[in-house]
Design a protein around this nucleic acid. Structure first.
Length: 115
RNA sequence: CAAGCAGGCUGAGCGACCGCGGGCAUGAGCCGAAAGGCUGUGCGUGAGGAAAGUCCGGGCUCCGCAGGGCAAGGAUAACGGGUAACGCCCGCCAGGGGUGACCCUCGGACAAGUGCAACAGAGAGAUACCGCCCCGGCGCUCCCGCGCCCGGGGUAAGGGUGGAAAGGCGAGGUAAGAGCUCACCCGCCGCGUGGAGACACGUCGGCGCUGUAAACUCUAUCCGGAGCAACGCCGUGGAGGAACAAAAGGUCGGCCCGACCGUUCCGGGGAGGCGGCUUGAGCCUGCCAGCAAUGGCAGGCCACAGACAGAUGGUCGUUCAGGGACCCGCAAAAGGUCCCGGACAGAACCCGGCUUACAGGCCCGCUUGCGUU
RNA sequence: GGAGAAGUACCCAAGAGGCCGAAGGGGCUCCCCUGCUAAGGGAGUAGCCGGUGUUGAGCCGGGCCCGGGUUCAAAUCCCGGCUUCUCCG
């Protein structure tokens, strides 16, 4: 994740929830906004209502891997938070991937990478 | 060979590409006055037997506390040992289960005191409902005797109720009965022998006492409280305080007037940062002591994670388990092809246990039954 | 990560060893009131699961989150799980 930092502080998450736009899919919710920074910043939220620690870790790792593999397509300066919903627990990797890219495209922070 | 019992180990292997957290080195690039930081490169490393539940015991911190005793509250409970300690472990005893290997048991004291034992039943340490027996009364009868809407007394053998009816059973005894007496058995106390002890055996003597302490209680032993979000250090700004200066300067403004603004130190401490943070009752090998838990000695090793919105992942190939379908075949076995497919589960200060979850696989020992020699 | 609390009928809930065969509300059924409904008033049975029987009623057994245990007897006492909720920066 070359140009990417992770969102860490609670106030950063709350600022994004308050000021950003969101897109909803059955598997996840994406909040996003644009800043003047040169790199992207991303955070992942998997609440403990989704399951035990193993389940939550697997969901978060998959979401992070999806972001990593499609990192070059994100608009610089984007700040986003991906919140997993309950149906993400039993989802296939490809379903999660399609849901996340679709949501990001609707928010205008991602476009398919040109080869 | 089959069925079973007990214990221990293991918790898929190899490879490819991309990616992540620590550590060490490097000094290539950038930033910085420097310390150093970020990026890069190389080497090596990176989840568990339960990491889980947070149920016990410790270490470690802070708070409280002169020392000792008593009380309150809580915990534990046969006996002997192990351990830093434990409610854990080992051995053993008693009771219960199993043909057996073996398994199960919060297993002190109701004979110190108090409470409770609903309903049923006559009666729940006490009792006379039915019954049985004696005496009196009345009636029947020639008498023997028999009967009862009668009264007084004896009785705990029989009936029924109940979880439990007050040692069991037999004989003697008696009006009928009764440990009232006796033999045998059961239990408790005492005595003798053996044992480290719980206890076992014997029976010379005494006694016959309901159950319940996961009811209050008593006895013995142990325990101060909170927790790494503990705690220690640093800490821009802002609130507050002190010292210095009261001139110069800055901002608003065309200028004057006017308004606003200082520097240094202290400072509880919020955000944040750093430490605590991984070398420890540590791991491996061998020998000795012990039935064992465990302990002792010698040698070797730091390979055995340390994050802080929290790393250990993703996509594949192949092998090994496993399951299903088909082919071959009378059937089983073996073989072949294809498909599916990997238990429970993720460190968060660290250890010792317990409990709970768990696909399978491997090893050792033992028991019973059958067969062969 | 740590510290606690609570689970009782469809919902809210009382009960703290035996009279529990589970109180009381809400809900449900029937009746009154109304042109009809709501509200109000009166009465009533059951309730969840399984079995049996059925037009319906009934009858039997099990059930107080789940599984063990103590006791003659457990919603209640003890042990172990599960679920939900709260607090600590």
């Amino acid at each position: 994740m070359r140009f990417t930092d992770t969102l860490k502080k609670n106030y950063e998450f709350r600022r994004l929830y308050a000021k950003g736009k969101s897109a909803v899919t059955p598997y996840l919710v994406v909040y996003a906004r644009l800043t003047r920074r040169s790199g992207c910043r991303v955070g992942f939220t998997v609440s403990n209502k989704l399951g035990k620690a193993v389940v939550r870790n697997r969901v978060r790792r998959r979401l992070r891997e999806i972001y990593r593999l499609h990192e070059t397509g994100f608009v610089p300066g984007a700040e986003l938070v991906v919140v997993a919903r309950a149906r993400a627990v039993g989802a296939q990797y490809r379903q999660l991937e399609r849901a996340m890219l679709d949501a990001c495209k609707r928010l205008g922070v991602w476009r398919p990478a040109s080869p």
